[in-house]
């Protein structure tokens, strides 16, 4: 089973949103995680915190806020941004998106277009996707014992940046973000001993 790909939709238009949700359901392994209206505060932060692989945007719902949001999302390398456009859309707006879906296309054209954007489903070994690498396990153990990024870097002779990259990978693989959550995982899998953890606390 490969990982479910999360989609966040930005739109005020109900009919459009309902359509996008239906379209996403056509592709297996994808789901609409959340729908935000264009008037939401701190929209970009909210989107990023949901860790979507895709953000589908109705440009009409954002108006002048569109350019800024696209610029902010552009810094997120793991997020693909898809614009909903039509044949009558302003060329200027169409060109702002690396990926687009045309609202006038029929179902099969849309499914095909979306499938192209999404790419082939990754064929990871079933059940293996949450297996951590040796390095990741090491870092998880140190985290569970209460060490900071800097301390882990010093101890394992890595740069802080590398430690942080590994942490991100661990979180993505396990679906656990907080240090306490990661500690629970490490304890349950007997990667660390509870006495070691408690000594730190």
């Amino acid at each position: 089973m490969s990982k479910t790909k999360k989609v966040v939709v930005i739109s005020n238009a109900f009919l459009l949103t309902a359509g996008v949700e239906n379209l996403v359901l056509e592709l297996s392994g994808m789901l609409v995680d959340h729908v935000y209206s264009g008037s939401q505060r701190n929209l970009c932060e909210k989107i990023i915190s949901r860790k979507p692989e895709f953000v589908i945007i109705d440009p009409e719902s954002l108006n002048e806020k569109l350019i800024r949001l696209l610029r902010e999302l552009n810094d997120e390398k793991d997020i693909k941004v898809i614009g909903i456009i039509s044949s009558t859309s302003n060329q200027n707006i169409i060109s702002k998106f690396s990926y687009t879906l045309n609202i006038q296309d029929n179902k099969y054209q849309l499914v095909e277009a979306l499938q192209k954007i999404v790419g082939k489903r990754n064929k990871e070994e079933p059940g293996n996707e949450h297996l951590l690498s040796k390095r990741e396990t090491e870092i998880l153990q140190q985290l569970a014992m209460g060490l900071t990024n800097q301390e882990i870097a010093d101890k394992l002779f890595l740069s802080v940046h590398t430690v942080m990259t590994h942490r991100k990978k661990i979180t993505r693989k396990l679906g656990i973000k907080t240090v306490s959550g990661l500690t629970v995982f490490a304890l349950m899998n007997k990667l660390v001993d509870i006495r070691e953890v408690e000594r730190q606390v």
Binding site: S49, L174, G175, I176, S180, G181, F185
Partner: peptide
């Protein structure tokens, strides 16, 4: 934020790892 994240982690642990 952080309160929400802990709860989400807890659910994941019960669903996937307990």
């Amino acid at each position: 934020e952080s309160v929400e994240e802990k709860l989400r982690d807890l659910k994941n642990i019960i669903i996937k790892y307990l």
